[in-house]
């Protein structure tokens, strides 16, 4: 079944088509949610919120460009709003030094998707949010600063620290091997 057929079915509020859309894209969108929420229950909540928003605003999709990209954008926006609601974004300075977890991998080439998700989940919430937005979802620092109500320089420094922390995880595990 083509995306167009699925979309038109969902626009009629047909539950069967909504299920088809969910089955087809929930895996990819769950990955998006897991990037932002290490806790599986929160990620699942975000996924449900994302699909609700998708079904509500599906008529806005103009069939131009990638449907998958549009879905991801909606879910990312929902995830960001949820993070703001959870009042975590502005607390990253405190949290950035609070977490101390262990991660083991052999080398970057051998990293599997689940390993990467685990590494991202180890980042403090502020690092993780900025890293996800900039690297994974293509936001600019200006957009990040506007969305999270922080300065652009803060966004840049958070990104640098996130990269350093990820690099350190990889290096330390390599050395230990």
């Amino acid at each position: 079944m083509s995306d167009r057929e699925i979309i038109l079915g969902c626009l009629q509020n047909d539950r069967n088509y909504q299920k088809v859309l969910f089955d087809k894209y929930s895996g990819i969108l769950m990955t998006v949610c897991r990037r932002y929420f290490p806790d599986n229950a929160l990620a699942e909540d975000a996924l449900q919120d994302g699909f609700i928003r998708i079904f509500q605003s599906l008529q806005q999709f103009n069939f131009q460009g990638s449907f998958e990209g549009w879905l991801k954008k909606v879910v990312v926006n929902v995830a960001l709003r949820k993070i703001q609601t959870e009042r975590k974004v502005r607390d990253w300075m405190e949290l950035s030094t609070a977490e101390n977890k262990e991660f083991h991998c052999t080398s970057i080439d051998k990293l599997q998707e689940e390993d990467i998700l685990t590494m991202i989940s180890f980042l403090p919430v502020g690092y993780r949010t900025v890293f996800n937005m900039y690297v994974m979802d293509g936001f600019s620092h200006k957009e990040i600063s506007d969305t999270l109500s922080i300065t652009e320089s803060t966004s840049r420094s958070q990104l640098v620290k996130a990269r350093q922390m990820l690099q350190k995880m990889i290096t330390e595990t390599n050395e230990s091997d």
Partner: peptide, 12 residues
């Protein structure tokens, strides 16, 4: 990282 996760389907 981006290439690895862009189309990765997590278990739902």
């Amino acid at each position: 990282f981006k290439d690895k996760l862009d189309h990765y389907q997590s278990k739902v």
